[in-house]
């Protein structure tokens, strides 16, 4: 089956050990996690995992259902790139000498909308945000001057909808809570 890069968003309660519960679902099905980011969401107390993985639609659908099955997971969704706005961030460390010797690096920084975070006499740290392809391109260009260190973050992504998709689910669950506590007291 055709493989696509999917972005999985998992909303969960803040419980110890949840990261492991989420990642083992991928491991068991031999799907490699390409990137993983954990942060808070716009909803107080709710954590958000953003995971990318290359796989087919059928597998990602099953993975999402298996993740949702974990008790402390509120909801999980999967997206293709066209459904979300996403970004990654990269840090490059290059020798300051190579910055001084020509305007090549300055041109790259302007071209990729990157910025310089720190300059010392030995090295310069450049930050770039963008899609993976843009980061790969800048990496290749910069590497002609020998990158000393490089790191890229996991993907962060946000949907094109105006609210956290989770809100509806939380409303439903709140209604269920009221039903449980008023219904059979």
């Amino acid at each position: 089956m055709e493989k696509t890069l999917y972005t999985v968003t998992v909303y969960s309660e803040n419980q110890v050990g949840l990261l492991n519960q989420v990642t083992i679902v991928f491991t068991r099905r031999q799907v490699n996690i390409e990137s993983l980011t954990v942060s808070r969401s716009a909803i107080p107390g709710v954590h958000k995992f953003t995971i990318t993985a290359n796989t087919d639609r059928e597998t990602i659908r099953k993975i999402v259902l298996q993740i949702e099955k974990r008790i402390d997971v509120l909801k999980a969704y999967y997206y293709t790139d066209d459904e979300i706005i996403f970004q990654e961030i990269a840090l490059y460390k290059v020798p300051t000498l190579s910055l001084m010797s020509s305007n090549e690096i300055e041109t790259l920084v302007r071209k990729y909308n990157a910025r310089i975070l720190e300059v010392t006499k030995d090295y310069t740290v450049i930050e770039q945000a963008g899609h993976k392809a843009e980061i790969d391109a800048m990496f290749d260009a910069l590497n002609k001057n020998k990158i000393l260190q490089f790191v890229r973050s996991g993907r962060v992504a946000i949907t094109r909808s105006t609210v956290e998709r989770l809100s509806n689910f939380l409303e439903e669950m709140e209604a269920r809570r009221k039903e449980v506590f008023n219904g059979n007291n």
Partner: peptide, 8 residues
């Protein structure tokens, strides 16, 4: 326990 927000 009669209700868990994250579990239906």
């Amino acid at each position: 326990c009669r209700y868990i927000r994250s579990y239906q």
